[in-house]
Simulated assay, not measured.
Amino acid sequence: MELLDRSDPQRIGGITLRGRLGAGGMGRVFYGLTDDYEQVAVKIIREDLLGHTEARARFAREIDALRTVQGPHVAALVDASGEGEERPWLAVEYVRGLSLKEFVETCGPLDGEHAATLGVLLASALGDIHAAGLLHRDLKPGNILLGRDGAKVIDLGLVALVDGPTDLTTTASTLGTPACMSPEQANTPKQVTAATDVYSLGATLMFALAKHYPYDGKTVAALFMNIISADVKPDLAGVPEEFAPLITAMLAQDPADRPTVPETYERLKEVATSGGVTLPVAVRRFAVATYVERDSDPQDPTPPARPRRRDLSEVVVPGSVVAKLADRLRGAYAVGARF
């Protein structure tokens, strides 16, 4: 997190801005606090786009999508600008953890159990997005944040209606991130379906497991040609054997050959719980293993503790606690005793 620049706003709506989180194609993202001290990530449209009708319409579409989608694994909308405001903005819950892209690049690929659990959470998020009649169209490692409770999907800036025009204008311009883009999205962006999000989920899981994407190319044009060519197969190097059939199916050239989101969810759940653990336990293990706290508020002189990545096996319970618990259990199982 960086300090605010002199040119940055200090306050917007009922939110005090405290630092810079990053920037994207549509605007800059800030860390802020509401008047109730709720931490939020605030996206403000770029000043040079204020006069662009399409950019403003896309920003409004993202706000509408966030108001519509309800789900534990999609970052929730906290507040947003009204119709009459000159500079559109939106605020979503702040997730202090790293993005999946940052985590894999820093700590390395996920193991099979954690990757499967991640896939379950992302499939759940896509299910909630699709249930609202929307497509994400830009699911990728950079749009997935790893928080205390697992993974959350962010950035609905390219969201589209399932049963309507998928772009805001009549152009057929390609929108999305090439590395995770399906063949149909790269080739015919106005004819995408829910299967496009399944493909992006497959590409994201490949990155989580093997630290690379299905296709590569020396140029963006070469990458697009590899993606849309039926003769070029995705590179599965580094993908564990138990994941290869599912990942291959999710990356099928023909959208009709890909599993649905519910089918993907169930197949990943089988892997995540194959060791006899319940899904909630698998999610908790995933969260403990992947949560790395971001830098604190740059204006706060007392930064929070920064927990390192750790495994549940590292947790040590003091002997006094164990002894006390043992005494309680012996009492509980004594004849006539009540716990």
Rank of each mutant, 00 (worst) to 15 (best):
G127I: 06
K101T: 04
E102D: 15
I129L: 10
E105M: 05
A131P: 08
C107V: 00
A115Q: 12
S99Q: 15
A91G: 04
V78M: 12
A91T: 06
A75K: 06
H73E: 09
G97V: 09
F103G: 04
I129S: 11
L145D: 04
V120F: 00
T117Y: 02
E105N: 15
G147Y: 08
D138F: 01
P88N: 14
A80D: 15
D111W: 01
T106N: 02
V74W: 08
P109S: 01
V92W: 04
G142C: 14
G127F: 10
E93H: 02
A116T: 02
P141I: 01
L121W: 00
L135P: 15
L139V: 12
L90A: 10
L118Y: 13
E86L: 14
H73W: 09
L121T: 05
L134P: 07
T106D: 07
H136C: 10
K140P: 13
I144D: 07
L122S: 11
P141R: 00
D79Q: 15
G97H: 11
D79L: 02
R87A: 12
A125Q: 00
L126V: 11
L145Q: 02
G112T: 13
R137E: 11
A80F: 02
H114L: 10
P141M: 03
H73V: 04
H73T: 08
D128Y: 07
E93L: 07
G108M: 04
H136Y: 05
R96F: 00
P109G: 02
L139D: 07
G147R: 07
K101N: 04
L110F: 12
L121F: 00
H130A: 10
G142L: 12
P141C: 06
T117I: 06
V78D: 12
A131Y: 03
V104Q: 11
K101S: 09
G142M: 12
L126M: 15
A76K: 13
